[in-house]
Amino acid sequence: MSVLTGSLPGIAAAAHDAGERIAISETVADDGPFHFRIGCVSVSVRCVHVPSMRAFRRLYSACTLATAARDAISVEILRTRDGKSLRRRYEVWADGVKRFTVWNVDEIVPHIEWAINWQIMLFHPRFYLVHAGVVEIDGAGVILPAAPGSGKTTLTAGLIARGARYLSDEFAMIDPETLRLQPYPKALCVKEGSFEVLDRLGAGMSGRPVFCKGKKGRVVLIRPDEVGGEVSEGCPVRHIMFCQYAADRKPSITPISRADGVLRLVRESFTFLKFRASGIDLLTDIVRGAQCYELASGPLEETRDLVLHTVRGG
């Protein structure tokens, strides 16, 4: 139990509306709300299922804030019952909108993360977003755009276990003004098929809570420091590697043209339709300062070494 001096977002808004400034001493319950700054994203989470709230807090213990940030995404998990069967269920609300309903407690934490990702995609006004794993290697930003199931989280984890600094396993968040990558160091979401390989990296997979993430199946969430990685503070984009995974092939990397890189980035973008013509300009400017490749990824260790070798000028 922690004691905060501050105010709930809703209360703060009401106070401002009334032209007042109030400070509320509050004892935060085990279900929150708890406040976090995950890289450049602020979040407040309240979860009625206390073990899930604890699991989320453990994942983001290094990102804790004492009070809610003004621009925080607000996620709330409520317990309800199905109207017909009376079976217990949990509703995941984000900024006042119901995003998901889950029926099992092992689905809650991944859906908190999912709700945050949705809010970032839909409403984060500032950044251009590409679906990608992102790391910094020797100061150079490396974007690994890939379709779901292409192994980008596993490759990202493999790279940070070898000294790369972590930015995200979900979004390349690009500041349109500086063209620099911004960190969104969410917990790495590892699917069941990669548990063994992550164990080889020293992530200590046994005994970890296993969550269920809808159709993606069983997942484990890992903090970047648990595979030995540090978090980047942001960096310029220098390499863009479009990944396609096949389990049993020797990995290879092939340069592609920058124009091809722009076209592929558009396809992997979450926010292109927010930026449109300025998005073309932004992506064109980014690839002018970067090398673009097609990465045919395979077994993790070989793929990871190939990426490191390429970035380090081999």
Binding site: S257, R258, A259, V262, L263, I280, D281, T284, V287, R288
Partner: peptide, 9 residues
């Protein structure tokens, strides 16, 4: 249109 290295988007 934007030209890049002799190609264009």
């Amino acid at each position: 249109s934007r030209e890049l290295d002799g190609e264009a988007i």
